[in-house]
């Protein structure tokens, strides 16, 4: 629409540019609600609030699966042997180097809390399976140790540790 050249700005140019710019601003602003509505709604966010899990029923060597924000969380009560094994592994030899200490809470090293979603393509690994006494993903054969660290297979990263803390010695809050 702007027929005249930039060398000779006229009132006509200014009017057309101002109208066009206002239309562009309005159009972009009007897009926002249509994009924002795709995000989790208020009830989904509220349902994703932290949960508390009682650890007393979980005996040594056992593990439980709880759900938080629709994701399975493995809570493993590890044996001394498992803890010693994973702590003995040289960190630098791992595909995704991380110490077991950094993945557990001090004073509660028998407890491993990880999100049970394979970092390869999102399947759920099976606990107490595989060559490392940890997790084995049946989809594409990724193997994790008892610290949830990837040891073998196509998965690029360790099983993530969700945000959690110990409310008491026998209770954790996830989230």
């Amino acid at each position: 629409m702007t027929a005249s050249t930039a060398d000779h700005p006229t009132r006509r140019d200014f009017l057309f540019v101002a109208t066009g710019a206002t239309a562009a601003v309005g159009g972009v602003a009007a897009l926002w609600p249509f994009i924002s509505q795709m995000n989790p709604d208020a009830s989904t966010i509220a349902a994703g609030a932290p949960i508390e899990v009682d650890l007393t029923p979980v005996a040594e060597g056992q593990d439980i699966k709880v759900f938080w924000r629709g994701k399975p969380i493995y809570i493993s009560h590890r044996t001394k042997k498992q803890v010693e094994e994973v702590r003995a592994v040289p960190v630098s030899s791992l595909p995704d180097p991380a110490s077991d200490q950094s993945r557990t809470k001090d004073g509660h090293e028998q407890w491993l809390v990880v999100i049970g979603i394979c970092t390869h393509l999102g399947c759920i690994p099976i606990a107490h399976e595989g060559n490392y006494d940890g997790f084995f993903c049946p989809c594409h054969g990724s193997q994790y140790d008892a610290s949830g660290r990837v040891r073998q297979g196509p998965a690029p990263l360790n099983l993530p540790v969700p945000p959690y803390q110990f409310v008491s010695d026998t209770k954790i809050q996830i989230g």
């Binding site: 609600p33 795709m38 709604d41 208020a42 009830s43």
Partner: peptide
Amino acid sequence: MHYTPHADLAFKSVELIVRDVNYG
């Protein structure tokens, strides 16, 4: 995308759109 076409849930789902969905 947010509506549930079921006799028991339709009314509620419309209310949830208005109350909970961003800009619903």
